[in-house]
Write a protein that binds this DNA or RNA. Structure first.
Lengths: 65, 65
DNA sequence: TGGCATTTAGGCATATATCCCTAAACTATT
DNA sequence: AATAGTTTAGGGATATATGCCTAAATGCCA
């Protein structure tokens, strides 16, 4: 989960998105983005899907690390 | 979520595993496997990770559909 | 047809993901 | 130094994922 969070941060920063911008695009709460990147929580598939969409990538690519 | 469930069922059957066998290997409840394949619930990353491991594939491959 | 494995179904309790909130800490940039 | 943007942090309420249980329905093979 921590590995996934690190990868997400990398992907987000590569698109020059702030956590707030990503949370807006994905329609998930900023606190969730923070906790997911930190590996504090264990996101659900729907949240992962929303994040992938907001990043303009597929779920498959979200896990390509 | 339903699409993911259908794909999971395909992957599981391709390995000739029953839901019960997969639930045992992944150490998750049989009722969860059923509900995930049916798209009734929204699994967490840790559950998805356990399923991928039990299938002998990566998370990336679990979402390759 | 009978029995066995598998899938489908639902109820209940517990853990926790998610949302909404406030606010502090950190990082530029001026 | 001061302001603005961003990240980090945590508390509380609600929704729901998960585990455990029982049992019915379905499929399959002897």
């Amino acid at each position: 989960m921590i590995a996934f969070g690190n990868n997400l941060r990398k992907l987000r920063q590569a698109k020059n998105l702030s956590m707030e911008a990503l949370s807006y695009e994905a329609d998930i709460d900023l606190s969730q983005v923070f906790r997911i990147e930190k590996g504090i929580i264990n996101p659900t598939l729907s949240t992962l899907h929303a994040i992938a969409n907001a990043l303009g990538i597929t779920l498959k690519d979200l896990f390509d690390y």
